[in-house]
């Protein structure tokens, strides 16, 4: 299902949450507010974060570079990033 279609915010949030859950199976999202640094709250180390990038990229069907890492700091940032990137990617493929 890894598509190249653009995601809306709700879809992007689902992808972000599912991807985080794949890395941290017992992630408790009630502890993560939209603007919290989820890496800190959920205790993702650098290997976890790399796995997250890998899964996010696969799920959303868009490349994610190291330069994009700072945009994956909070849930809100990540959603915004995915919406934007999937849209760009979809347009570039037309």
């Amino acid at each position: 299902m890894s598509g190249t279609r653009s995601l809306d915010s709700a879809e992007a949030l689902t992808v972000v949450r599912e991807s985080i859950t794949a890395v941290v199976p017992d992630a408790d999202f009630t502890r993560v507010r939209p603007h919290d640094r989820f890496r800190d709250v959920l205790e993702l180390d650098s290997l976890d974060f790399l796995s997250l990038v890998e899964i996010l990229s696969e799920q959303a069907g868009v490349p994610i570079d190291e330069d994009d890492y700072p945009r994956l700091t909070t849930l809100a940032d990540s959603v915004e990033f995915l919406v934007e990137r999937t849209k760009q990617y979809e347009q570039s493929r037309r």
Partner: peptide, 17 residues
Amino acid sequence: MHRRNRGRPPSARLVTA
């Protein structure tokens, strides 16, 4: 590391650790 990771898929990237 950044130079080296550029253009590589996440699975082939290094981390500082």
